[in-house]
Design a protein around this nucleic acid. Structure first.
Length: 267
DNA sequence: AAGTAAGACAACCGCAGCCCC
DNA sequence: TGGGGCTGCGGTTGTCTTACT
């Protein structure tokens, strides 16, 4: 015969776990519609839910909230994730702040299931410099290509902001840039094509050339990546340098044509 | 058609930071 | 000032679905 449960066990039995039912969802939505969110433990009790406050909060923020976006991540969103992850690492909530309607959980799942899978296939550690370089120099340009293809086949992909127009590549990245980066974009967006803009971003990922102090990559590597405090001239110079670098190093374009780097496996 | 593996994503857990008493 | 409660974050696990054999 099962012994009589103690106080903790009783409380544990009263707390529901696992997938939410439609009825529970409705209770939560109705309560938050009437009273607003916050004070989650109190909310859980008041709404008549046998769930922890934590569980209610998670369900609301990750699934029920009206402005949650559903469906696959767009190439623009993927580009932002890759870009911001390269800057901030696993700061999922911070990254999510730049993707309206997407949750940190969703982004985290995307990274773990898609991106880390690619690292595994390439026999790389997902947090290694070599995989970081692969992302920057191969996957991201692929995404840029895809965005450009999409935009050329549809005029509705154009972006407009405060009277200035931005390409489909620039617009989402622009919105994700830090204030310091933003001042750069203000000054330089008209002078750099999307391609050379991305090329210059890509150049940051390449290894520094030993013993060449004038190499812009050495300059880049001496900077605090978190703050990205390079200025307009430095950035433009790097861009020019990288364009020349690409011209002199056909391996980049050759590798881009290789099946290994197609987007199929990643998205 | 059934069984199994892999993928996608929802949910849980532990921890840290903050606030209030 | 330290203890308790609440909240948010990131890592991990569980479950459901889909693809494959």
């Amino acid at each position: 015969m099962k012994p009589f449960p103690n106080k903790d066990e009783l409380e544990d039995e009263q707390v529901r776990r696992g997938p939410w039912t439609l009825e529970e969802d409705n209770l939560l939505i109705h309560y938050i519609t009437c009273h607003g969110e916050g004070r989650w433990n109190f909310l859980a009790k008041s709404a008549g839910l046998k769930r922890t406050g934590k569980s209610c909060r998670l369900r609301w923020l990750n699934y029920l909230k009206p402005d949650i976006k559903r469906g696959n991540l767009t190439p623009q969103e993927q580009l932002i994730i890759l870009e911001l992850h390269s800057r901030w690492g696993n700061r999922w909530s911070k990254i999510a702040q730049h993707l309206p309607g997407r949750t940190d959980n969703e982004i985290k799942n995307y990274w773990r299931t898609r991106v880390q899978k690619q690292a595994k296939q390439l026999n790389m550690e997902s947090d290694s410099q070599s995989f970081f370089d692969a992302i920057r120099c191969f996957y991201m340009p692929r995404l840029v290509q895809k965005i450009e293809q999409n935009s050329s086949s549809s005029t509705s992909m154009g972006y407009q902001e405060s009277g200035s127009s931005f390409t489909p590549i620039e617009a989402p990245l622009r919105s994700a840039l830090t204030p310091v980066d933003e001042s750069f974009r203000e000054n330089s967006s008209s002078s750099l094509s999307p391609k050379s803009f991305y090329s210059s971003e890509c150049s940051k990922a390449l290894n520094p050339v030993e013993g060449n102090p004038s190499n812009p990559l050495n300059f880049y590597n001496s900077k605090d990546v978190e703050n990205s405090n390079y200025d307009v001239e430095e950035f433009a110079y790097m861009s020019q340098w990288f364009d020349a670098y690409v011209a002199d190093n056909s391996w980049i374009n050759n590798d881009l044509a290789d099946d290994t780097w197609t987007l199929g496996g990643l998205w």
